[in-house]
């Protein structure tokens, strides 16, 4: 299975055009080449958006908006950085703007948890770590609850958490994409971790009580 996947990947890398070549074709007037670019980078871009927004519609809209902006700004793209990284920085800034625009920042967790969510919190409290890891994949409520937890963060804190933890970006990379100083990124990351831990502790307490 793994061998088949690897051989497919090798075959793909031999036949697929590099991003730079496709970009040159788009700039030369072949807009169909952009389809190839977008399908190549789409899964990663959508995944990134889904880490910020639980609503799949919003995530998909933002991914589309990212590709459209990339298309219209393609002439400004310089080949010194990979196209994927350039596109990612566009999408990150879009998501950040959207987070700030929504300003949905309930500082406290709302107490109206549904039965499946409470069940998941109870399981996180009581089950063994092996079972927690095993069960999380199957449960939509685990995903929803995690989004609710992250919704309590300030937009800039959430941004830093996702970029650092999920995208595994360095402090310097985050600072360069968001136009912040490295010190600001470090401070925000520290505060975000503190705030997230505090809210998660509260959630665990809810799971223990019920």
């Amino acid at each position: 299975m793994l061998g088949l996947a690897a051989s497919r990947k090798i075959a793909w890398s031999l036949t697929a055009k590099p991003d730079e070549e496709l970009i040159a074709e788009v700039l030369g007037g072949d807009s169909a080449a952009f389809n190839e670019l977008s399908s190549r980078h789409r899964p990663r871009v959508e995944r990134l958006c889904q880490r910020f927004f639980s609503d799949p519609e919003i995530a998909r809209d933002l991914a589309q908006e990212g590709f459209i902006r990339a298309y219209t700004a393609l002439r400004t793209y310089r080949a010194e950085m990979p196209f994927g990284g350039w596109l990612r920085s566009i999408v990150i800034n879009l998501c950040y703007d959207e987070l700030r625009r929504r300003k949905r920042r309930p500082e406290e967790l709302v107490g109206d948890f549904g039965a499946p969510e409470v069940q998941w919190m109870h399981l996180v409290n009581e089950a063994s770590p092996e079972n927690i890891v095993g069960d999380a994949e199957e449960r939509q409520e685990a995903h929803d609850l995690a989004h609710r937890l992250l919704d309590t963060l300030r937009p800039e804190d959430r941004m830093v958490m996702v970029l650092k933890e999920s995208e595994e970006m360095s402090v310097a990379e985050i600072a360069s994409i968001l136009g912040w100083s490295e010190a600001k990124v470090k401070i925000r990351a520290f505060r975000a971790r503190q705030a997230l831990r505090k809210q998660a502790e509260r959630m665990l307490a809810v799971g223990r009580r019920r």
Partner: peptide
């Protein structure tokens, strides 16, 4: 600490399925 981690991990540390 693992249980605290597990509450945010489904978004922060899982592969989210693209559409």
């Amino acid at each position: 600490a693992f249980r605290v981690f597990a509450l945010s991990a489904p978004v922060l540390h899982s592969a989210v399925e693209p559409e």
